[in-house]
Design a protein around this nucleic acid. Structure first.
Length: 425
RNA sequence: GGAGGGAUGGCCGAGUGGACGAAGGCGGCGGUCUUGAAAACCGCUGUAGGGCAACCUACCGGGGGUUCGAAUCCCUCUCCCUCCGCCA
């Protein structure tokens, strides 16, 4: 959610910024609702004042004719107040609905561009390995090794589901544990185990609603929603709280399953485990002061990079242009990891600074010192990393000519010392 | 799932439909005293909206209602606690 003051003061600048995102928002509607709101409020509040004063007088009077006359005289006043209260409710609901639809504005440092084709590769690290043979895509490699079972996944749950088995399941578990430990021990995050099913309100707070309703699984009976990312519970962790400045930044890391309906990606990325309805992810999250958030953004990029670096797999950092920022980010980087079998760069991490966009939706503030006015925090999130695509990269980069897969050095302690996954296992 | 009890300011806790934004206590901040600290005493100590000034308005779990007037009465929802049932 944007600051209403910003829209009130310079609606044209806001519209322009939104145009650079390649989208639109009901700014004119907001401006007029906001104006109407204050008109209603002004009249309503002065009538309430009148009523309060009259009631006070009635309370002090002896019972009698004069008192009754005064009581009778309030009926018109009260009718008007009721009407205005109804108007106000309606107005504020419409205003809130409209405000929830407005995307975040880009930071001035974000390059203007129409869509993802204009994103900027900022840096690339690691050299793609030279294969003496044709590297296989993981959808061939995994089943051959007996660690990845697509047919049974479909049998259980339908398309875009799969089963990890044996060393495959263990490899994912090793990655999760290693990543969590890395972020906690080396990068100073606090590990969180949040619910994976949350109230609707959390979805609004994190910016999943109203725009992405079609991509979310939900239990209609209890009105609970399955998270598509740990960002959702982590955003809401401190909802409605006022934090102390000395507690900031707060850094959290969580591993959760993520559920996405992928309604609009039909036909895309159908092979392999790149895009499923259920996947695991390790997510980093920070709450900072406004002045610290852009430094924190670079930190999170570094923390995600450290994972790729330690795995010794080539990756690159891509800056999103305005047209590819999405709904909540003011600035966003993607980390893409190299997958030689699939022959593509895979997005394994998306790192965003939402500034106060989510904080306003969730009402998370902080106080610089005792008695100071509360200010909104800035929130940031970044994958560290998404498991299936990391698995793809590991399998495809570490495959050997004989069809086996070497276990990356850093993971071996979490794999019981296992050095190689082969078909016989 | 069944029965009962509860939800008040940072925390604890009082509150008869009318001067309650809410007693009292604790905590916090400032001050007096003190070499310093403690104690004692005094004062201050919520959030938001609107005018944006000394003011006004709203908020006692959420929503709705009764009333000239609601923290206080009624309805409803949510959450918490206790007991029973069931269960990893």
């Amino acid at each position: 959610m944007l600051d209403i003051q910003l829209i009130r003061q310079d609606p044209e600048a806001v519209k322009e910024a939104i145009a650079s995102l390649g989208t639109e928002a009901p700014i004119d509607e907001i401006v007029s609702l906001d104006l109407g709101r204050r008109e209603i409020l002004q009249e309503l509040e002065s009538l309430r004042q009148e009523r309060n004063e009259t009631s006070e007088r009635i309370g002090r009077m002896e019972a009698g004719e004069e008192r009754q006359t005064l009581i009778d005289s309030t009926s018109g006043l009260n009718e008007r107040i009721k009407q205005l209260e109804a108007d106000l409710r309606e107005n504020e609901e419409a205003l809130k609905r409209a405000m929830y639809e407005v995307p975040n504005l880009p930071d001035p440092s974000v390059p203007v561009g129409a869509d993802e084709s204009e994103n900027v590769v900022l840096r690339e690290e690691g050299k793609p390995r030279e294969f003496g043979f044709e590297p296989l895509p993981h959808w061939d490699l995994g089943p051959r090794l007996g660690i990845l079972d697509f047919e049974r996944g479909v049998k259980l749950s339908g398309s875009r589901f799969y089963v990890l088995k044996g060393a495959g399941a263990k490899l994912q578990r090793a990655l999760i544990q290693w990543m969590l430990d890395l972020h906690v021990a080396e990068h100073g995050y606090t590990e969180i185990y949040p619910p994976a099913i949350v109230k609707e309100q959390c979805m609004w707070g994190a910016g999943q609603l109203p725009k992405f309703a079609d991509n979310i699984y939900r239990d209609a009976e209890d009105d609970l929603w399955l998270i598509g990312t740990a960002e959702i519970p982590l955003t809401n962790l401190h909802r409605d709280e006022i934090l102390d400045a000395e507690d900031l930044p707060l850094s959290y890391v969580a591993h959760t399953p993520c559920f996405r309906r992928e309604k609009f990606s039909g036909g895309r990325d159908v092979r392999g485990i790149k895009r499923g309805h259920q996947f695991d992810k390790v997510e980093m999250y920070k709450l900072t002061t406004p002045e610290d958030s852009y430094g924190a953004l670079e930190q999170i990029v570094e923390h995600a990079s450290a994972v790729c670096r330690a795995l010794e797999i080539p990756y690159r950092v891509v800056q999103m242009v305005t047209g590819d920022l999405g709904f909540t980010a003011a600035k966003k980087y993607d980390l893409e990891i190299w997958a030689p079998g699939s022959d593509e760069w895979l997005e394994v991490s998306s790192v965003s600074n939402t500034e106060a966009f989510q904080a306003r939706r969730t009402d998370i503030r902080f106080r610089r010192e005792k008695g100071a006015k509360p200010e909104y925090v800035h929130t940031l999130n970044g994958s560290g990393l998404a498991l299936p695509r990391t698995m793809i990269a590991v399998l495809e980069n570490y495959q050997q000519e004989d069809g086996s897969v070497k276990v990356p050095e850093v993971l071996r302690p979490w794999m019981g010392g296992l050095e190689r996954v082969s078909a016989a296992m």
